[in-house]
């Protein structure tokens, strides 16, 4: 019997086999999404709650579409318009929602580890849609899936993650996922935005963007997370942009073509110029498209686990 997942809390702890299983299932969903009728009834007896305690556009729409296209019933919840404002705890909020016969919870939360905490204290399957600066597993999966689609495989590829590594959950999940699949990973950014001990994860560190680009096959550009920065990490956005902004001129200097990725939202003219973001090197919109297929695969496989449990 193939291995199935109970929760998706992070990439850490996920086996290579599970990641490949997600990708192969996502291949089928991608094909389905490109057929005239984009729906399946496979989760029609299933209810998912989307709990977003933090703002999101892409991830939330992507999960919602994935759930709807699998035929699941969904309920959306955002902290700004809920009883959380009245002082209810996270566990109470979730248990109240679960008592209305919800099978799975997709949660985004500003606190690192919130999903892990929840998985230990409530009886439901949890999908992490981003927990603070910790992990964003579905983003890493769709990034790796997009690299695999564009370059044929992730194994042996050189990927540089550029920008605010310190505050980025996307960076951490990407590092775990890419390394698990056999890619070589480098991080690049000003030293104030690179965590001190990150080389302990086995990644290379580079502070010069041009050198990093010369090394890599794929560059994943990250946004500066101003909302998580309580102190100044660099003198000005303009200076950051001059040192770490990806421009057409910089790409033209390279003696090869590289793939440009960005998890969004893009700050045009800061970490990436419009010229590069809209160029043929960029697979930013393919990433978004693949996000729905990958999330469908995750939800589909998780739903199968519930069956295993209920039979046991």
């Amino acid at each position: 019997m193939p291995a199935t997942l109970q929760h998706l809390l992070g990439i850490k702890g996920l086996s290579t086999e599970s990641i490949h299983q997600i990708f192969e299932t996502a291949d089928n969903f991608k094909q389905l999404l490109n057929s005239p009728v984009k729906k399946t009834p496979s989760l029609r007896d299933f209810t998912v709650a989307n709990l977003f305690f933090e703002n999101s556009t892409r991830t939330r729409v992507s999960f919602e579409l994935a759930e709807k296209r699998l035929g699941a019933d969904i309920v959306n919840f955002s902290s700004s318009s809920s009883s959380v404002k009245k002082g209810e705890t996270l566990i109470d909020t979730v248990n109240n929602i679960l008592s209305m016969k919800v099978d799975m919870v997709v949660m985004r939360h500003p606190a690192p580890g919130a999903c892990m905490f929840l998985a230990r204290h409530v009886n439901a399957q949890i999908v992490n849609a981003g927990d603070g600066t910790h992990e964003h597993p579905t983003q890493a999966l769709l990034d790796a899936f997009s690299i695999r689609e564009k370059l044929g495989s992730v194994y042996g590829k050189k990927v540089v993650i550029v920008g605010d590594i310190l505050h980025s959950r996307v960076a951490l999940s990407n590092i775990f996922c890419l390394q698990q699949l056999g890619a070589d990973v480098m991080v690049c950014g000003p030293s104030t935005l690179i965590p001190k001990h990150i080389s302990g994860l086995g990644v290379k560190v580079e502070h010069n963007l041009e050198k990093a680009l010369q090394w890599c096959d794929v560059a994943n550009m990250l946004r500066i997370q101003l909302e998580r920065q309580d102190i100044k990490y660099f003198p000005s956005l303009r200076e950051y942009s001059m040192q770490y902004g990806l421009t057409g001129a910089l790409l033209n200097k390279l003696d090869k073509e590289i793939v440009i990725m960005h998890p969004g939202p893009i700050n045009r003219g800061v970490e990436i110029s419009s010229e590069v973001a809209d160029s043929s090197h960029s697979i930013i919109l393919q990433q978004v498209e693949n996000g729905v297929a990958v999330r469908m695969a995750v939800l589909y496989l998780l739903a199968q686990h519930q069956l295993e449990q209920s039979r046991a």
Binding site: M1, P2, T4, F29, Q31, T40, P41, S42, Q304
Partner: peptide, 26 residues
């Protein structure tokens, strides 16, 4: 054609993993 996602026994018996569909026409 793969019919996995349309089966009526999803979450009722074995675990069903899809195989590729190849239909490149309408």
């Amino acid at each position: 054609l793969d019919n996995t996602f349309f089966r009526d026994d999803i979450r009722r018996g074995e675990i069903h993993l899809p195989r590729p569909s190849k239909i490149d026409f309408s």
